[in-house]
Design a protein around this nucleic acid. Sequence first.
DNA 1: CTGAAAGCGCTAACAA
DNA 2: TTGTTAGCGCTTTCAG
Lengths: 339, 339
Amino acid sequence: MSKVNIKVLAEQLQLSVSTISKALRDSYEISDETKKKVLELASQLNYVPNPYASSLRKKKSKTIAVVLPEVADNFFSLAINGIQSIAETKGYHVLIYLSHEKYANEKTILEDCQSGRVDGVLISISSETNTADHIKRLQAQNIPLVFFDREQEGIETARVTTNDFECGLLAANHLLQRGCRKPAFVSISQSLPICLNRMEGFKAALLQAGIPEMDIQTIYCTDDDSMNHQIKTILQSPDRPDGLIASVEKIVTPVYLACHELKINIPNDIKVIAFATLDTAPILNPPLTTITQPAFEIGKAAATLLFKGIEKSTFDLRKEKVVIPSALFERESTRGLTS
Amino acid sequence: MSKVNIKVLAEQLQLSVSTISKALRDSYEISDETKKKVLELASQLNYVPNPYASSLRKKKSKTIAVVLPEVADNFFSLAINGIQSIAETKGYHVLIYLSHEKYANEKTILEDCQSGRVDGVLISISSETNTADHIKRLQAQNIPLVFFDREQEGIETARVTTNDFECGLLAANHLLQRGCRKPAFVSISQSLPICLNRMEGFKAALLQAGIPEMDIQTIYCTDDDSMNHQIKTILQSPDRPDGLIASVEKIVTPVYLACHELKINIPNDIKVIAFATLDTAPILNPPLTTITQPAFEIGKAAATLLFKGIEKSTFDLRKEKVVIPSALFERESTRGLTS
DNA sequence: CTGAAAGCGCTAACAA
DNA sequence: TTGTTAGCGCTTTCAG
């Protein structure tokens, strides 16, 4: 079966290719009669326009890239859904790129995004990323870019985030109110603003509560493979924290497993709160208190901004900063001893 | 900043575009000296080839489509990782399309795949899909297609699945051995082979155990919104099952929540086993017995087959059928009364 | 080893 | 209202 294109349609209808092209795009220049004939033959022959030819000519691809660390993560998969829901209404395609938390991958991906393959980029940076050069190079090509959730400092463009500092504060105060005296914060990166901001909030709350800075425990699990081991080490240390804030979702399972294995009772021995959009949070043992990010909405907001940047050259993305607040859901994992 | 393309390189180096093109592709026709000059200038000017121009000319896009119902699902997100891992080694891009379990969406997506945008398609069909026409139309364009996990009958092409029937049998026998007398099977589709096969296995086990066919309960939750309500109804019925097989992951949370709310104890009042790749299974309350699909491997195998089909025209996808077995992980949710 | 020229499928001036 | 033509950026004969 040979591919049917505009030329084939033109020949069969004894019309010129431009007439066909215009008819297909419902141009006012073409009579209703010919339009009808064209559409009919097109659907009859199962004609599907070649998007690459069109992109090449029009210099726009009607495609956006979403660059993210991982798709096996509730936050990101929900964010993708939010992004797609907007892209759909705009008639755009979504190309998903995974950095797997590696800076090198992210760099390669952004290079590819300079090719004309996409009209804009939504990005949540990898936990390794701590430089802005690769992103600046993309911007130098005038490709609109919007950060969502995990932004990179030093880049002037729109970002959609949640209120990380306040939530760090909130999480810490929640633990303090539930009786924790030495809560610890578990981070996955030394550079990610989401981790830093959440941690700053945590620290601020503890300092305010009169806990000396040197007693504040912060733990870095920057490597997936050693995470289990690291968490166990902490839980077995003589100075074991009595509360834990998981800065991201993937810390939850290792923490629970370690506690179960070491017979450390949550919440009696240690209280746990996590930044997570896990839908299984209420059915965990025990049900997990979460700070839940509006993942879907963040995706939607970021995509909405990006399309404004793509469609209106007058729209200045640099000025845009949207903060959508997260919410605390209290569950058993942080209940006080009385319960 | 104007886009730098081959022509720009050619002008700056006083060479022809074809020489540049060949040099960039490391052709044997070009001297090492000019190759070096070209590569140098290219990287200096940040040249990135336009993939659409190349696709148009070469009539292949180096891109594959992955069509799936949902990304917020552990099975599919792991499968994506498997697919990407293979695509990466082949230098292919992956375009992810979500049908959101709607046939209409799936149809539109497959139409788009006929445009030349992709060289091949990996698909896991929606729970609504029960016709093959839209897939046949794609095949008529000679676009290689491979099913993974959720296949459509009546289409001759490669498929990578797991041993659904055996696992249905296994799950049912597991419940029977743990003392269940009237286990029920919860499905999400009347047509999906994965659900049908798992259910057939379930039925076969029960019949073999001497349970009369009319006593075998099968429940259909085809609609996400009403799932919670439906599950509650079942759990409150006088003829409440004493065991439950969740045919897919997303049934788990509603079942657990309903049991908690209705004070139905798992596993004492009802035992639960689920087809799922949930990493939180061991930390649920109670830990969930699962039949775990090799999601990553299924993705890898499907992608590997697809690339064979794309790259070797002699390779006949129609003959390929790969079955990668799942594994049962026994946990508290199906423990016998003794424990 | 390098270059000229045609063309992938489509769009957009500009003519007619 | 329709047609002619040039060209998007790249690859690929075919000549030189």
